[in-house]
């Protein structure tokens, strides 16, 4: 501090005061060396997940000769691509303390919309319509949450039901077949399935946004303390609205890929997708109370879920056990995170 202005108190208790001040000075000053190893940086959070992944991979590699094959690895990635594309904005929402439960029925809605409109307006027109519909769904969610101030859990739970119902009505309860739209779901440029390529692009965009952009940083701030974030001048409502719109757009892309992979759009497709998204995001270290979480963490969560499902299938284990395994994994991961937070002096 240069040139302290004479505000100082010349009071008889000044000695005692100085003593207190030095005490507060020395305590933190002497602690860094002692304190550093104990205090958790973000790295150890993911380290636990990496260990889990390695254990799973080694286990399945030993048990099944097909597991480590290049084809199977691509299978795993393809299997998580659709969920993954939605989980990237899903992570952004959860970091900001929000959740979008309408993603599963939204994806089905987009698929059926494509299949039912393609004859009327052509493939190109139908694809554009689906993308616009995705943006609109996101905008409606975002507006309800930000303008009318309905809690996002409730808003999107309502939207989940609305969209599923509309999808059934539109499809008249039937699975609609669509031909000539296989490329997006099945093409393999350079041997890599196109859905995986799209997923990779979305992940890279997500990582860049969340790590380096003012927008991404604002989402962390909003999730950590929405009131404080607003008071530093962040346009919190605008940031949240944008994130819901991104989520809607990702849902449209995921819906298109899903439909293309199956060459059909079922009104009951993607049921429970929203829960898989939340599982992956939370597994990846995001906190339900906001302010924490990374795209790479979510990616790791997705890969673990993918490996688990794939491995159990290869070992011919009943698919219902896969649900059990995924649930157990989630509970373990979250319990572990609670323990870690309780042990670290930060919280």
């Amino acid at each position: 501090m240069n040139e302290p202005h004479a505000v100082s108190l010349t009071r008889d208790g000044s000695d005692a005061m100085d003593a207190t001040e030095t005490q507060t000075t020395t305590t933190p000053a002497s602690s860094p060396d002692a304190g550093r190893p104990r205090r958790g940086r973000p790295v150890p959070e993911l380290a636990g997940l990496v260990v889990v992944l390695v254990v799973l991979v080694v286990f399945f590699a030993v048990k099944s000769p097909y597991f480590m094959g290049a084809d199977n690895i691509l299978n795993i990635l393809t299997a998580i691509a659709v969920v993954g594309i939605i989980a990237v904005p899903g992570t952004m929402l959860l970091v900001a303390g929000q959740v979008d439960l309408s993603v599963g029925s939204g994806a089905a809605f987009c698929g059926v919309l494509l299949a039912t409109q393609v004859d009327r307006i052509g493939l190109g027109g139908a694809v554009v319509l689906v993308l616009v519909a995705g943006l609109a769904i996101g905008a409606i969610n975002g507006a309800l949450v930000n303008v009318i101030n309905v809690n996002s859990l409730i808003t999107t739970l309502g939207m989940l039901a609305v969209l599923r119902g509309l999808t059934e009505l539109m499809a008249d309860g039937q699975t609609a077949i669509i031909s000539g739209f296989e490329t997006l779901g099945t093409a393999r440029p350079l041997g890599i399935p196109l859905p995986v390529v799209v997923f990779a692009v979305v992940v890279v965009i997500g990582v860049l946004l969340m790590r380096y952009s003012v927008f991404g940083r604002s989402l962390y701030a909003i999730g950590a303390n929405p009131v404080a974030a607003r008071l530093v001048g962040i346009r919190t409502k605008w940031a949240l609205f944008t994130t819901f719109v991104l989520s809607g757009f990702a849902v449209a892309i995921a819906g298109l890929i899903l439909t293309s992979q199956l060459s059909a759009a079922s009104p009951v497709a993607a049921q429970g997708l929203e829960l898989t998204v939340v599982t992956a995001v939370v597994l990846g270290g995001a906190s339900l109370s906001g302010g924490r979480g990374t795209i790479l963490g979510t990616l790791l969560g997705l890969v673990i879920i993918g490996v688990l499902n794939n491995g159990l299938t290869l070992l011919n284990i009943n698919s219902f056990w896969q649900d059990v395994a995924r649930g157990v994994l989630l509970i373990l991961a979250v319990s572990f995170d609670q323990l870690r937070q309780r042990l670290s002096p930060t919280n």
């Binding site: 962390y220 701030a221 950590a224 303390n225 404080a228 974030a229 008071l231 302010g291 924490r292 930060t346």
Partner: peptide
């Protein structure tokens, strides 16, 4: 606490 800091950041 409520309106100033983003405590975990």
């Amino acid at each position: 606490q409520r309106a100033g800091t983003m405590a975990i950041r």
